[in-house]
């Protein structure tokens, strides 16, 4: 038998937190408010250190809570506070058709499907519950390893390929 893919890391305490996404919504908003003000100041003092600090703290904190894969374009609040990059197929728009009848992953039978959890958790959210219906653009692979907060502040995470943006504009007009 070929070795199976490893299950997503689950840290003590983190599961409880993710199952109470209303707290995480608030933490997200507070952190955003803080980082958006603090990062430009830090950057003015020492840009390299500021970036290093953001990457390291994100790796540690989001790594503990969400098993963050550092894709650099975080959409956690749109996906029920469950990291979609933990899906073995990296799906960002919803579950595949292979989810097992018990709600577990097709690829890793011991792991609950990321998207089953995302859906359940998004239902108990207050602010971002309906963001799960948004069509997410293709992942920008060049942002891998970057801090999602930094890419957000500098606007890189919402820059989609030119063609995609054209199609999205037409969608809005429709």
């Amino acid at each position: 038998m070929v070795a199976r893919m490893k299950e997503a890391r689950r840290m003590p305490g983190a599961e409880w937190l993710k199952n109470h996404p209303r707290w995480l919504e608030r933490i997200y908003l507070w952190t955003k408010r803080f980082v958006v003000r603090a990062y430009p100041l830090m950057k003015r003092i020492n840009p390299r250190f500021a970036n290093w600090l953001m990457v390291r703290s994100e790796e540690a904190l989001k790594g503990w809570a969400f098993n963050c894969q550092m894709c650099g374009q975080c959409i956690l609040h749109s996906t029920g506070m469950t990291c979609p990059m933990n899906c073995p197929k990296n799906l960002r728009n919803g579950p595949c058709g292979g989810v097992r009848p018990n709600g577990h992953c097709e690829v890793i039978p011991d792991m609950p499907c990321v998207w089953v959890q995302a859906w359940e958790r998004s239902r108990s959210m207050l602010i971002f519950a309906d963001e799960i219906k948004v069509i997410q653009p293709p992942v920008n692979r060049t942002l891998q390893g970057a801090s999602a907060w930094v890419t957000m502040i500098e606007g890189h995470d919402v820059q989609t390929p030119h063609g995609w943006a054209m199609a999205a504009r037409q969608e809005v007009e429709r």
Partner: peptide, 30 residues
């Protein structure tokens, strides 16, 4: 099963890319 999985796009992104090629007449790069 030893192969590398790609999954660069997902099915919904793929749909939108195909529609974009048809309706906008462009590639993803524009």
């Amino acid at each position: 099963p030893e192969a590398k999985r790609v999954f660069d796009l997902d099915s919904i992104q793929l749909l939108q890319v195909a529609r974009m090629m048809r309706d906008q007449g462009v590639l993803l790069s524009g």
